[in-house]
């Protein structure tokens, strides 16, 4: 009788442990996602300033500027992780196109305000890449835990769902995630 009680107590204890570690992992995933979100928002905030600064100089590049503005508003409207990663990588593409075009405008490149903005955007771009890296690490941990025995039993009972990876749409884009316009 005593043994049965001890065994049940032990099982409950292990059960609670698994449940708690699942919750902790899920919160870490959420936290990592909010880290990315902060950086994405920062990028969205910086872009209007950038366009404002560039507009006066780049009279003949209205299409490029318009492309960025459109990509930005699309990215701001995106909801799920999958949608967001698609829209954000489109925005990244538009931005890198812009910075290639900038090379033709030495006046703009000499503008102090623009240089400061450029540094901020480079940094934000890098921060997005780095936080994506750590978000994906967390998601991998979490998804492994959900799929593996015995924690998958607890995950099944409480209906834990696997999280999406934050991946870049285009495979070729992954090779050049670096935005380098050295100061």
């Amino acid at each position: 009788m005593l043994f049965v009680i001890i065994a049940i107590g032990l099982l409950v204890f292990i059960f609670i442990g698994f449940y708690n570690s699942l919750i902790r992992l899920r919160n870490q995933v959420k936290n990592a996602w909010s880290q990315i979100d902060v950086q994405l928002k920062r990028r969205h905030d910086l872009i209007p300033n950038l366009i404002e600064t560039a507009k006066g100089y780049m009279k003949h590049e209205q299409d490029t500027l318009k492309g960025i503005t459109e990509a930005r508003s699309k990215a701001m409207g995106a909801g799920s992780v999958g949608e967001k990663s698609k829209a954000e990588s489109a925005l990244s593409g538009a931005m890198s196109k812009f910075f290639v075009v900038v090379e033709n405008y030495p006046d703009l490149k000499a503008n102090q305000n623009f240089l400061a903005l450029q540094e901020e955007l480079t940094s934000t771009e890098n921060k997005i890449a780095f936080s994506r890296q750590s978000y994906n690490d967390q998601v991998l941990f979490f998804n492994n835990k959900i799929q593996m025995f015995p924690s998958n039993i607890v995950a099944g009972i409480f209906n834990f769902k696997q999280e999406d990876f934050f991946e870049l749409e285009d495979k070729t884009e992954r090779a050049v995630p670096k935005v380098d316009f050295s100061s």
Partner: peptide, 16 residues
């Protein structure tokens, strides 16, 4: 030196 702080923050994010 804003760039230094940016780089430190980037690495802080990368190192979690």
């Amino acid at each position: 030196h804003p760039q230094l702080f940016n780089v430190v923050e980037e690495m802080k994010i990368a190192a979690n």
